[in-house]
Design a binder for these strands. Structure first.
Lengths: 213, 213
DNA sequence: AGTTAATTTAAACACCCGTTTAAATTAATC
DNA sequence: GATTAATTTAAACGGGTGTTTAAATTAACT
């Protein structure tokens, strides 16, 4: 059934790397197939279209991350509602870093793809994610809300999207920021170090009391 | 000298709107010139290339925003170092909203362009901004650092980029988020309302004590 | 082994892109 | 008003894009 390594897999592996680095529209099928060492037409044969390839690339990560994240959230001291926001966000570190075992640089690739998906493709990838992984997202939102009960649901909606923006933009610029940090402050952070830096920032922002005046 | 409205201005006006909505690479010169009702070749005649047009679009906003922001930061109670982080971030509201008077929707267009500039064009727009507006940026960083002296410079570097990501990603998705918020919570926020929502989040994140363990 | 199905391949298709050219037009200057 | 300069215009250039086609090849099944 499979010639050498599965053609489908070779395409996905090459595509996710290029998509994360350069964005979807800046990455041509010809570049993907040449890096993957497969024929140009095989993308349309196996995936139908470029748009569906993009979805498949994202789904391959989400199908690993989402269930794993839900398990960690539910496991929090056997009672997620008593966990702090820092603990809840930190519970996502393990599922995120496990993506590095799936593929080299998997964590940062996943987060960059997520950001590209939300910004580039005007809305239809956001729709794909929120509908296909609704239960997992609800689990997460419920846990966060329970641990910050002073934040009304509408305000929490906005703050969680602020949080998504924070992490996703950070990871999209991670390489550039790391270079500057190394040059200016002698710092050398890997993906995990950056995630551990950003969690307190996000947790503090989500929990800050709403201004009433 | 000018036929009707200045051709150069017509191009910039059409371009900034399309760039903000769809991104740089997704916006063709043919689409820009047709919306602007000018000839295709006039872009290259007046700006040289598409890349230089992108820079000109961004510069037109930065040249208004940056000096205005610096003035507001320096004016903070005549002593910026005694202002709170909330006050410092809030000082940027006026310069941001004044962009709405420059052009309709100017505030959100500017913030979306900023985000596109940082994410899409791999690094060379980030370079353009940090070198051409270095003094203004330094003024801002200095004020923020003075009002959160417990945050080491390297940590502050990261947190300010978290902050940039938060605001820029939020504004890039503002329309979509507003639709959801309206449908799910009956909320209707304009650009200013969203900015006022995000400021406490960012201020809390920037100031949160660094974990020592 | 022979037949059918799945996959791979090279080539072409139709289209859109940024840029350039040279002629036509408009504006400015003497 | 004639001459020069600035701008606008239509057309073409060369190249890249996603997708489709039909033939060649490989794998699977009876």
């Amino acid at each position: 059934m499979a010639s050498r390594t599965d053609t489908k897999t070779r395409i996905l592996d090459a595509a996710e790397k290029l998509f994360a680095e350069r964005g979807f529209s800046e990455t041509s099928l010809r570049l993907i197939t040449s890096k993957a060492e497969v024929n140009l037409a095989s993308v349309n044969y196996h995936f139908g279209s470029k748009k569906e390839l993009i979805r498949a690339v994202l789904a391959r990560y989400l199908d690993v991350f989402m269930p794993s994240a839900s398990i960690e959230i539910n496991r929090l001291h056997l009672a997620p509602e008593h966990a702090s926001l820092n603990e809840i966000f930190s519970a996502l570190i393990k599922p995120l870093l496990e993506l590095n075992k799936v593929r080299n640089g998997g964590t940062i690739i996943f987060l960059q793809l997520l950001g590209r998906g939300y910004i580039e493709s005007q809305g239809h990838l956001r729709w794909f994610i929120t509908t296909h992984y609704a239960e997992h997202l609800a689990t997460f939102v419920k846990a966060v809300s329970a641990s910050a009960p002073h934040i009304p649901p509408a305000e929490m909606f906005w703050r969680l999207h602020f949080t998504l923006g924070t992490i996703v933009f950070t990871m999209a610029s991670a390489d550039a920021l790391n270079e500057i940090a190394a040059a200016d402050y002698g710092e050398h952070n890997n993906t995990e170090a950056i995630i551990r830096k950003v969690i307190p920032y996000m947790a503090a922002g989500v929990a800050v009391p709403v201004l009433t005046n």
